[in-house]
Computed example of a mutant assay.
Amino acid sequence: MSAMTLLWVFLAAGLATFLIRLSFIAVEGRVRLPSWFRTALQFVPAAMLSALIAPDLLMQHGELALTPANARLVAGVVAILIAARTRSVGWTIAGGMAALLALEALF
C-alpha cells in the first residue's frame, strides 16, 4: 500500500470517527432518546475496554490460554483484585504491572 493510499485511509477513518461522535453532540437536546437506550449507553465504555483487553489476557500465541502459566491473565486477575479493593487507578496499574513483570521474569 502506498503512502498516499494510507494517508487517504487515515483521513477517511478520522472523518468517519469525527462524524459519528459529532452526531451524538449535534442531536443533544433535539432528540429524546428512549430511557432504555440512555441506560445502555452507560455501559459502552466498560464494554469497549473489556473487548480490547480480554483477548490480550486470554490468548497466548493465537490460542486460548486459561492456565496459571499465562502471565498476562494472572496479572490481569491481580489488577482486578487490586481495583476492587482500592478503587484506585494508580494502584491498579502499578500492582498489575508489577505482577506482570514478576511473572514474566519467572516464566
Rank of each mutant, 00 (worst) to 15 (best):
M1H: 12
S2M: 09
S2A: 11
A3N: 15
A3Y: 12
A3H: 12
M4Q: 15
M4L: 15
M4C: 09
T5C: 02
T5A: 13
T5P: 03
L6D: 12
L6M: 12
L7V: 03
L7W: 01
L7N: 05
L7T: 12
W8N: 08
W8A: 13
V9E: 08
F10L: 10
L11G: 05
A12P: 03
A12W: 03
A13Y: 02
G14L: 03
L15I: 11
L15M: 08
A16M: 11
A16K: 01
T17L: 08
T17I: 10
T17S: 06
F18Q: 01
F18P: 04
F18A: 13
L19W: 10
L19S: 07
L19E: 11
R21V: 04
R21D: 07
S23L: 01
S23P: 00
F24D: 08
I25Y: 08
I25M: 10
I25G: 04
A26D: 04
A26C: 01
V27R: 12
E28R: 14
R32S: 14
R32A: 13
S35A: 13
S35V: 14
W36I: 11
R38Q: 14
A40E: 06
A40P: 01
L41D: 09
Q42F: 07
F43Q: 01
V44E: 08
A46C: 10
A46N: 14
A46K: 08
A47K: 01
M48V: 12
M48H: 04
L49D: 02
L49N: 06
S50E: 05
L52K: 09
I53L: 15
I53E: 08
A54H: 04
D56Y: 09
L57H: 00
L57N: 03
L57G: 02
L58T: 01
L58G: 03
Q60A: 10
H61G: 13
H61S: 13
H61Q: 15
G62A: 07
E63S: 15
A65F: 05
L66A: 10
L66C: 11
P68I: 02
A69G: 14
N70S: 06
N70F: 02
A71N: 06
R72G: 00
R72E: 12
R72D: 03
V74A: 05
A75E: 03
G76S: 05
V77C: 02
A79V: 00
I80T: 05
L81D: 00
A83M: 09
A83S: 09
R85N: 15
R85S: 15
T86L: 11
T86S: 15
R87L: 15
S88F: 13
G90P: 04
G90I: 11
T92K: 07
T92S: 12
T92R: 09
A94F: 12
A94D: 08
G95A: 07
G95L: 08
G96Q: 01
G96N: 02
M97T: 14
A98K: 00
A98W: 00
A98N: 05
A98H: 00
L100A: 00
A102K: 04
A102P: 02
A102T: 11
L103T: 02
E104Q: 13
E104S: 05
A105Y: 07
L106P: 03
L106R: 08
F107V: 09
F107W: 10
